[in-house]
């Protein structure tokens, strides 16, 4: 699975993307976040307040409860500031 990070999330992590092999038991974005948080304190800190982080699945704005699969492209970002 490809995961992309934007804005301050990218800066905090020090990377704009990563590839992971999605474990079978991870079925939703919420579960993916828990998996990432268990990796280290940087992820834990980033996702401490999920309300300020948005997610997209295959470039579609989605919810943390939504289902994911290994082929999906996930992106995490703060609220958009276009225009």
């Amino acid at each position: 699975m490809k995961i992309l990070y934007f804005s301050w999330i990218k800066d905090k992590l020090g990377k704009s993307e990563e590839n992971i092999i999605l474990q079978e038991q991870i079925k939703t974005v919420e579960q993916l976040v828990i998996f990432l948080q268990n990796k280290n304190d940087i992820y834990k800190d980033i996702f401490k307040d999920n309300k300020i982080i948005k997610v997209s699945i295959n470039m579609e704005v989605s919810n943390f409860k939504d289902s994911i699969s290994d082929q999906d492209e996930i992106a995490f970002f703060p609220p958009m500031t276009g225009g």
Partner: peptide, 18 residues
């Protein structure tokens, strides 16, 4: 403004911030 996937990083003469 709210649906365009863009993020602005401003650099001022004092600091930089999203």
């Amino acid at each position: 403004k709210t649906k365009g996937p863009f993020w602005k990083y401003e650099k001022t003469n004092r600091a930089g911030f999203w």
